[in-house]
Design a protein around this nucleic acid. Structure first.
Lengths: 233, 233
DNA sequence: CAGTGGTCTAGACCACCAG
DNA sequence: TGGTGGTCTAGACCACTGC
C-alpha cells in the first residue's frame, strides 16, 4: 500500500521487468498490447502505458504503433552522467574551491575549432584559459573559446570573479551540444599548469555547445591526474 | 496541428522552456502551480503535469509537493551515454569484428576486486581476459572477473565463440551497477596487447554489475589509443 | 485498412511537507 | 493542516504503419 497501490504504474513496471528478467518474455518477443495488459492487471490502460513507456525509456522495450511492443533484442546500456558545475563538484567533496584566470583574449581560432563551431575565418572569439583548484591543488584546466557576439550580457561578466563555465551554465541554461570523453598524454603547458609529469595520462572532456544553430562555446576540460568520472546505471 | 495539437504536452513544454530561456522565469523562482497553468493554457492539468515532469527530468525544474515548482538554480548537465555491445559498436562503423580469448581461469581475486564485489577471501571467480579487434586491429582489452556461481546457464557458454561481455548483456539484461571513466598510462602486458608504446594515454571504463545484491561481474575495458566516447546532450 | 501505441480530458483521491 | 504535485480512471480521438 502506502506509496504504491496494487495498481500503481511502478508496481506494474516492477512486475513486467521481472517477466523480462526471468525470461518469461524473451528478447525480441512481442508482448501483449496495452489493452490486454490493462485487463490482466485490472487497471486503466493509461497506467499500463506509463509503465511500458518507462521501461522503453530505460531501453528494455521497443515500442511501435501497430507493430506492438517487443523486449529489446540487444539492450543498450544507458549511463546517465550528471555533470555538475565544477565549483559544486568540489564543494560537495568538502574541499575548498578556487579559480585562477590564466588567459582571456580575443583571437581568430584555429581551424579545428572553427570547423567544430562552424565559424568563418574572419570572426574573432574570446579565448579563455583558467584553472580550477580544489584545496589549492589543480583540479581541472579549462581551455575554452567563447562566441561573445552571440551572448547578451557577457559584458557584465568579470572573468576574475566567476568562471566562464559557471556563468554560461547559469545564464545560457538551455542548450544542446555534444560531449566527448578521451585520454591524452600531458605535455608542455598543460603538464605545467596541472603540475604533473610529462606523459601522464589525463582524462579529457570536450564540449561544443549550441544555442539553436549558433555555436556558443567550445571547451576542453583537462582533469588532473587520477580523476574518475562516475555514474550509476 | 498535425503532430501536436495546440494543447499537446510538447507544445507546453516548448512554451515553458522558452519562458525559462528568455529569463521570464528566473533561476530559483517559483512558477505557477499546475492548476493555474492548466487554466492559462486552456488544457487539462494532466497535460501540464506531463510537460512539467518532462522538464524536471531534464533538470530544468525542481518539483516538490506543497512547495511547488521552481526553475533549477544550478542546472546539472545530464549526458546520456549509450553503451552498446562492442561487436555492435564496431559493426556499425562498417569494420570487421573479431575477438580473441587470452585467459580464462578460476582464481581467488585480488583484494580490490573482492572489495568492489563484496566477495569473501575464499571464493574463486573466473578471470577472463580477451581482446576485441576492429579490422584486425586491437580495439579494446577486456579484463574481467565473473562470479560464475551466481549465473545459471554459464556452463553453456564457450568463451572462444562469444565474449563474456556480450553473453552477459544479453542473458542478464536487467542489472544495476556503477561505471567509472578514467585515463591510465599503458604499461607492460596492456601496452603489449593493445600494441601501443609504453606510457600511451588510454581511456578506461570500469564496471561492476549487480543482480539485486549479488555481484555478477567486475570488468575493466581498456580502449586502444585515440578512442573517444561520444554523447549528445 | 485496421490494430497499436500516443495523447488529451475531466474528475477524483491521496501523499507529502512547508508553514 | 491545507496547498501542491503524483497518480489513477474511464473514455475518447488520433497518428502511425504493418499487412
Amino acid at each position: 500500500m502506502a506509496l504504491s497501490s496494487a495498481h500503481s504504474w511502478q508496481s506494474l513496471e516492477d512486475d513486467i521487468r521481472q517477466r523480462i528478467q526471468s525470461r518469461e518474455w524473451l528478447p525480441g518477443e512481442l508482448i501483449p498490447n496495452e489493452t490486454d495488459l490493462a485487463s490482466e492487471f485490472g487497471c486503466a490502460r493509461a497506467t499500463v502505458n506509463r509503465a511500458l513507456r518507462s521501461l522503453a525509456e530505460q531501453g528494455f522495450l521497443d515500442r511501435k504503433r501497430k507493430a506492438g511492443t517487443r523486449v529489446t533484442l540487444h539492450p543498450v546500456r544507458r549511463a546517465t552522467l550528471h555533470v555538475p558545475i565544477i565549483r559544486k563538484e568540489i564543494e560537495e567533496r568538502n574541499q575548498d574551491y578556487s579559480y585562477a584566470l590564466i588567459t582571456s583574449k580575443s583571437l581568430i581560432p584555429p581551424t579545428d575549432v572553427r570547423a567544430r563551431m562552424k565559424i568563418d575565418d574572419k570572426q574573432k572569439l574570446l579565448k579563455v584559459q583558467a584553472l580550477h583548484l580544489a584545496d589549492g591543488k589543480p583540479y581541472v584546466f579549462e581551455d575554452r573559446w567563447v562566441n561573445v557576439a552571440a551572448i547578451s550580457g557577457w559584458h557584465m561578466l568579470d572573468l576574475n570573479e566567476m568562471s566562464a563555465n559557471e556563468w554560461l551554465v547559469v545564464h545560457i541554461p538551455l542548450t544542446t551540444g555534444t560531449m566527448t570523453f578521451s585520454a591524452i598524454n600531458a605535455k608542455g603547458e598543460t603538464a605545467n599548469i596541472l603540475q604533473v609529469a610529462e606523459q601522464t595520462a589525463l582524462f579529457v572532456v570536450e564540449r561544443t555547445t549550441w544555442d539553436n544553430d549558433v555555436a556558443i562555446t567550445d571547451a576542453q576540460m583537462i582533469y588532473a591526474e587520477g580523476y574518475r568520472m562516475r555514474t550509476s546505471v
